[in-house]
Structure formats: structure tokens, C-alpha cells
């Protein structure tokens, strides 16, 4: 187990290093560079000035040298300044990350709370009318464009009914928890509706597979009550693959959060990344993307580790074929 964790951590570090270089290179390909933006803001700068500034900031150096310089600074904790916000990137990052984790966490809990009973219900009576209805809803859930779903929810709850705010994190000047919670409802609902279908299908499939196993038949033959059989015997085994799915899904949730946050003007990481890319805020875009990668990698890593810890049949020592 220890060796497995170490090897996965090393792998994740390699992916992250490769990703940081790739993203660094990509950011360099974004339109213009910081000096272009300075020149645009100050017409008195001549092209000689621009060239001199590029030399001062090291922008005339080859890509690898610039990357090495950035990496050195980043590893010592200096992630640079945001061009648009004029503050260190780190100061922007953490409050935003907190908002996003709140959004993702709330919708993950809600999704599983909805998907679990529905998935079990569908699995207990496969191909019944209920199962077919659930199946249809799931197909709808995975096919609906999330930003359109957000738009519909805004139209219903904010425009037509006027119950909930259409965007933002909190009302101006309001610090109350209830106000924050009201702003959270629609984003969480959007993200939940977009992800609940996937979980329901996984739970249904996993339960169906467990219910076909011999141990379930044995337990049933020995007279175990139906409810005990479902909740105590089959469900724990069916949940193991769900944990993997939830972990692997963290990256997708992050993408979903980006859409949701942009739609609702919710100040989280997703919106930060989107705004920074569109606003040519190079440092911020770079760090934001790396954080998104770290989230995805952490999800994958947790999924693998939890899977091997929970299922004694899985041994990673002999895994390399």
C-alpha cells in the first residue's frame, strides 16, 4: 500500500510538472504579451522602449529559460502579480478556491443524496416502469447543456417567480449567512442537476451487479430480510466503484463549476480562470489552470487510494502487467 501511494504520488508529480510546462508554453501563445498591453496603455512608449522592457523582464529569453525562472520563483512561493487585480495571485486564489469548494462540495453531497435512493430503487426493479422513467430522466440529465439549464433556472426562479437572486455571492452590504445561502441555491442546483444523472446510472449499475452475485442469493436463501440484504450486504459493495467515479469526476465537476460560476457571476476558481484567460492576466491564468490540474490529479489519486483501501481484492503490488 505504502509503495503504491508513493508511486502514484510520483506519477502525479510528473504529470503536474509536464502540465506546468505545457501550460506555461500555451500561455505564451496567448494574444499579445504584457509589454504589448503596456504599450497599448501608454502611447508615448516607442518600439525601442518596448524592446528594452522585454529585455528587462526577460521576455526575450528562450522559452525554457523563462520557464525555469518562473518555476524557481513559484517553488519559493512567488506566483507573481495579477495584472488586472494588481495584487499577488495567491491573495486572489484562496478565497476563490474556498467558494468553489463550497459549491462543489454542496452539490456533490446533494447529488449523491439524490442519486443513492433513486439508483437503488431502479436497480431493485430493473426494466420496470420506474426504472424506465429513471433511465429517461438520466438520459435527459446527461444531455442537457449545463449553461442552458442555468439559464432556465434563472428564468424560472429569478425572473418569473422572483424567489432567488440571479447571480453573485452575496447582496451588496449584506454579511448574513442566509443571504449567502440564498445566492448559493441556484448554482448548487445547476451543478447538481448536471451531475446527478451520472451518479444515478453508476449506482444503478453497481447495485444491479451486486444483486446478481452469489452471496446475495445465499443470503436470500438463508432468509435475510430484504431491507437488510439491500442496505447491509449489497450497498457497501456497490459503493466502492462509486467512490472511484466520484474521485475521477472531480475534474468534470471543476469544469461544471466553471460554467456555473460564469453563469451566476459566482466568484469562484472557475470564473477566475475564465476571466483571467479572457483578460490576458497571464500569471493568474497560469496558476489557475495549474490549480485545476492539481484538483483533478488529487481526485484521481484519492479515488485510486480509496479503492485499494476499501476493496481487499484489489492489490496494486502486482498491477503492472
Amino acid at each position: 500500500m505504502g509503495r503504491f501511494v508513493t508511486s502514484r504520488l510520483i506519477q502525479a508529480a510528473i504529470v503536474l510538472a509536464a502540465m506546468s510546462f505545457a501550460v506555461y508554453g500555451l500561455i505564451g501563445l496567448m494574444p499579445g504579451d504584457p509589454i504589448d498591453i503596456m504599450v497599448a496603455g501608454n502611447p508615448q512608449l516607442t518600439s525601442e522602449d518596448a524592446a528594452r522592457l522585454r529585455a528587462v523582464y526577460g521576455l526575450d529569453q528562450p522559452l525554457l529559460d523563462r520557464y525555469a525562472a518562473w518555476l524557481g520563483a513559484a517553488l519559493s512561493g512567488d506566483l507573481g502579480y495579477s495584472r488586472v487585480h494588481g495584487v499577488p495571485v495567491v491573495e486572489l486564489l484562496f478565497p476563490r478556491l474556498g467558494n468553489t469548494l463550497l459549491l462543489i462540495g454542496a452539490s456533490l453531497v446533494l447529488s449523491i443524496a439524490i442519486a443513492l435512493p433513486i439508483g437503488i430503487l431502479a436497480a431493485v426493479r430493473p426494466y420496470s416502469r420506474i426504472d424506465n422513467a429513471v433511465n429517461l430522466l438520466c438520459f435527459a440529465g446527461i444531455s442537457v447543456p449545463p449553461f442552458w439549464l442555468a439559464l432556465l433556472l434563472i428564468m424560472l426562479f429569478s425572473v418569473a417567480l422572483g424567489w432567488l437572486p440571479a447571480g453573485g455571492v452575496s447582496s451588496a452590504g449584506s454579511e448574513s449567512l442566509i443571504d449567502r445561502a440564498r445566492h448559493l441555491v441556484l448554482p448548487v442546483l445547476t451543478l447538481t442537476l448536471a451531475s446527478v444523472a451520472g451518479y444515478t446510472r453508476y449506482i444503478r449499475a453497481a447495485m444491479l451487479e451486486q444483486l446478481r452475485q452469489d452471496y446475495v442469493r445465499t443470503a436470500r436463501a438463508k432468509g435475510v430480510e430484504r431491507r437488510t440484504l439491500l442496505w447491509r450486504h449489497a450497498l457497501p459493495n456497490a459503493l466502492i466503484p462509486l467512490i472511484t467515479v466520484a474521485g475521477l469526476d472531480l475534474g468534470a465537476l471543476f469544469s461544471g463549476a466553471l460554467i456555473t460560476e460564469t453563469m451566476f457571476g459566482y466568484l469562484g476558481m472557475g470564473k477566475l480562470i475564465y476571466d483571467s484567460i479572457l483578460g490576458n492576466d497571464y500569471n493568474l491564468a497560469l496558476v489557475g489552470l495549474l490549480f485545476a490540474t492539481i484538483t483533478t490529479l488529487a481526485g484521481n489519486f484519492l479515488a485510486d487510494t480509496a479503492y485499494s483501501a476499501l476493496d481487499p481484492r484489489i492489490s496494486y503490488r502486482r498491477q503492472r502487467l
Partner: peptide, 9 residues
């Protein structure tokens, strides 16, 4: 492992 949507953007 790449974060799909941010990368596409």
C-alpha cells in the same frame, strides 16, 4: 487528467 474545459478555453 487534464481539466478539460479550462484547457479548451
Amino acid at each position: 487528467a487534464l481539466p478539460l474545459l479550462p484547457l479548451l478555453i
